[in-house]
């Protein structure tokens, strides 16, 4: 990063307060304005957030990685044919494309659980964090993993999982999706759990775990929460507002 000529900048003698917040405080000023260094830092963070939204998910690579770890994968598309349509028409991103639906209906049905990985608004999040999260979850949650489908959905929003789960006759749906990127968090992964999903399932029927990434909610903790919610959901036969996350009362085993 650019090294400012310090004599040009009015520094702020409260930079030690940065230990209490990630907010951009004590930036200093040149006249009324930001020093060059800070303009560049902000610009870089914004560039990374923009790339997270617009860089396409590398499906081939992700599929390869999932196979190498023994997961069974399927590949589908939403009704949003490109990123611009995806951004303008959230409804299209929620719909499973007809060809994909037929393809899934002819595939081996889900034994219990269907996992869906969506690019969402941050392909970087899905690319980086879905596999490590899934591996951590597999270690805790016992199901017929060899036959459990992991469906990679292109240009998908959370509700595309409903159509996928219906086509695969899954009882429990877990959607991993890239969240809307922030300036300081371009790669947050969101997890949505729905019991017995159907077309038109409401958000209130889902449980959400947010900000999954090493700097946010680490994989192990996210997997612990997800395992708790998944087991409770199957036991109580429900999900959403009536399923409370009491996993924080559990301890992470070393």
């Amino acid at each position: 990063m650019h090294n400012d000529d310090k004599t040009l900048i009015q520094a702020n003698p409260w930079d030690e307060l940065r230990s209490h917040t990630n907010a951009r405080i004590a930036l200093g000023r040149v006249g009324s304005s930001l020093p060059t260094r800070e303009v560049l830092k902000f610009g870089l963070a914004h560039a990374q957030a923009r790339d997270a939204v617009h860089r396409p998910l590398d499906f081939t690579h992700l599929k390869h990685e999932l196979h190498a770890e023994g997961f069974r994968t399927l590949h589908v598309h939403s009704n949003a044919q490109d990123r611009q349509t995806y951004l303008l028409r959230p409804d299209y991103g929620r719909q499973l494309h007809d060809e994909s639906r037929i393809y899934l209906e002819h595939a081996l049905p889900a034994p219990e659980l269907a996992v869906v990985i969506c690019d969402g608004l941050s392909s970087i999040a899905a690319q980086r964090h879905s596999l490590p999260l899934l591996k951590a979850f597999r270690e805790r949650f016992s199901t017929d993993w060899a036959n459990t489908p992991v469906v990679i959905a292109e240009q998908g929003r959370v509700a595309i999982g409903d159509g996928i789960a219906v086509a695969l006759r899954a009882r429990l749906l877990i959607v991993l999706i890239g969240e809307r990127p922030g300036l300081s968090s371009p790669d947050s992964l969101g997890i949505y759990l729905t019991y017995q999903p159907a077309h038109g399932s409401m958000d209130s029927q889902r449980n959400c775990i947010s900000n999954v990434r090493p700097e946010g909610l680490p994989y192990a903790q996210a997997a612990l929460k997800l395992d708790y919610l998944a087991r409770e959901s199957l036991r109580l036969q429900l999900s959403g507002v009536s399923l409370k996350d009491d996993s924080n009362q559990l301890k992470i085993s070393p």
Partner: peptide, 21 residues
């Protein structure tokens, strides 16, 4: 907002510097 970056709501707005400008 410090540096126009809201770290809680995850969006960009205007900063103290912007007001000075």
């Amino acid at each position: 907002i410090p540096g126009a970056d809201d770290i809680m709501l995850n969006y960009q707005s205007t900063s103290f510097h912007d007001a000075l400008y």
